[in-house]
């Protein structure tokens, strides 16, 4: 976890030797090519699993900006998914605005909400658990509000009529969702990779470590935490559109609820918060595991048992890999190089 736990362990930013950078880039390129070609050989169920892997990796990457790099533990990111999804759905049904544009409007509104939450949290210096509570509270308030607004479908939610029209963000072929989800994941990862190399990203890593020391060194920590929150909530809001139009329905409980917030943060934490590949690795570990336990345990009234599996895994990660799986993996690979 950010702050505290295990400073004896290697950094959230493992200093990668410059020589291995190009090798890493070729590896990434090869991985992307494989993922592009993969749907040709996958079963339709496997395609669904990959869609979920990419989509949750995307949400995890979005959260990673503020939760991982800046170390501000938001536990209410579902609020941004909800705001983004409902915005695009309403714009589509009421104003016939294509969700392709609606997703940007949804992202922008989510960013406004992110800015409000960030302002309250950062201006009044809420740290750790208090910031967690603030973000949870906002998400819950959103959920309850939407549940009680009839124009938004109330507790029953909204349903999107399936037309199969790509202009309406709907596809006959599930493989199209696969490519959209993959594009979202790569886009967010590209954004984070860019931030990581710029002053903004470098500052975030230091803010996570010690805000007071950052201030003394001339870093406007409030400004950078706000920026991180805005970038993160915007991306998450964009994800809301995908979520809504992939499922064809929006319910307050699933779009704004705590379970979704948990799904969002658990992958980057397991994979390595504050690392570029952590959310992706985390999603490749956890999403199939979640699906598997849902399939094998979901029958016969064991609903929710996959959450127990999550819990056990999270405890194991905190105990044995407090920095997440990616830093561990990077260390093992480096050792083999040497």
């Amino acid at each position: 976890m950010p702050n505290g736990a295990g400073s004896r362990l290697v950094s959230g930013h493992p200093p990668i030797a410059p020589a291995s950078r190009p090798a890493l880039q070729y590896l990434a390129l090869a991985a992307v090519l494989v993922l592009l070609a993969l749907p040709a050989v996958l079963t339709s169920y496997a395609v669904t699993v990959f869609i979920l892997i990419f989509f949750y990796a995307f949400l995890g990457q979005a959260w990673n900006v503020v939760g991982g790099y800046a170390g501000q533990l938001s536990m209410g990111h579902a609020a941004f998914v909800g705001v983004g999804g409902y915005t695009a759905a309403m714009l589509s049904s009421e104003l016939h605005l294509t969700p392709w544009l609606g997703m940007l409007v949804g992202g922008a509104l989510a960013a406004v909400l992110g800015a409000v939450i960030g302002y309250l949290g950062f201006r009044f210096g809420l740290r750790g658990f208090y910031f967690v509570l603030l973000t949870v509270a906002f998400a819950e308030v959103c959920r309850i509000l939407v549940s009680n607004i009839d124009a938004l479908g109330g507790a029953i939610g909204l349903y999107i009529t399936f037309t199969g029209d790509p202009r309406q963000f709907q596809f006959q072929d599930a493989r199209a969702y696969y490519y959209v989800a993959l594009a979202l994941m790569l886009l967010a990862t590209g954004v984070v990779a860019l931030l990581e190399r710029r002053r903004f990203g470098i500052y975030l890593g230091a803010i996570r470590e010690d805000e007071g020391a950052c201030e003394a060194l001339g870093v406007d920590t409030f400004k950078y935490k706000m920026l991180a929150m805005i970038v993160s909530s915007f991306l998450t809001g964009v994800g809301g559109t995908f979520y809504a139009f992939y499922l064809f329905s929006l319910q307050p409980n699933s779009m704004f609820g705590i379970p979704l917030s948990v799904e969002i943060i658990i992958r980057p934490i397991v994979g390595g918060a504050g690392t570029l590949l952590g959310p992706i690795l985390g999603s490749f570990i956890l999403t199939p595991l979640g699906e598997l336990s849902r399939l094998s345990l979901g029958h016969g009234g064991y609903h929710g048992l996959h959450l127990v599996a999550y819990g056990v895994l999270l405890v194991a990660v905190v105990l044995f890999l407090p920095q997440g799986a990616y830093p561990y993996l990077a260390r093992v690979l480096r050792r083999r190089d040497a």
Binding site: S7, P15, I202, Y203, G205, A206, D210, G212, C214, A216
Partner: peptide, 17 residues
């Protein structure tokens, strides 16, 4: 108050940026 999980150069860069 060093940033323990950043390298020495990174620490100094926070001041220099």
């Amino acid at each position: 108050r060093p940033f323990p999980r950043l390298t020495v150069v990174r620490n100094v860069m926070i001041g220099g940026l």
